[in-house]
């Protein structure tokens, strides 16, 4: 495990090839962009195969942040890493749906634990084959 970056207080941590980002409470637009850049760097540098984005601290996800999350998942995919979005609050989920933003292209899980299991299960399967 290694701490690679600490942006404000949104830490990016890599554990056994899986990048975990815990987004801190309310980022302004430029912080979101910086985070995106750092995440992509981290994936490439650590040759990570999985990305977990934890948004449990977020009370607000507007269309801008939603689009950034979708873009992060898309970029990770290009770098051959599977992205799972975890910890979305009920109020945030309902609001995004009302905005018409269902983020159907991003995988989701309840929490980082479950996402970690999903990613390592897939990796084990890949190894066996």
């Amino acid at each position: 495990m290694s701490f690679s970056a600490d942006l404000g207080s949104s830490p990016i941590v890599t554990i056994t090839g899986c990048v975990i980002v815990a987004i801190r409470d309310d980022l302004d637009d430029s912080a979101v962009m910086t985070l995106q850049n750092q995440l992509v760097d981290e994936i490439a540098r650590k040759n990570a195969h999985g990305v977990i984005i934890d948004i449990s601290a977020l009370e607000i996800v507007d269309t801008f942040t939603g689009r950034m999350l979708a873009a992060m998942a898309e970029m990770s995919k290009v770098l051959n890493a599977r992205t799972i979005l975890v910890g979305m609050r009920p109020a945030v989920a309902m609001t995004l749906v009302e905005l018409g933003m269902t983020l159907s292209e991003i995988e989701t899980a309840l929490n980082a634990d479950k996402a970690m299991m999903m990613i390592s299960a897939e990796r084990d399967r890949a190894r066996r084959e």
């Binding site: 979005l85 979305m88 945030v92 989920a93 995004l96 749906v97 009302e98 989701t108 929490n111």
Partner: peptide
Amino acid sequence: LKTAAAVRLMGA
């Protein structure tokens, strides 16, 4: 449909 979409966003 909305409920189903929100459930999925939460990871279920």
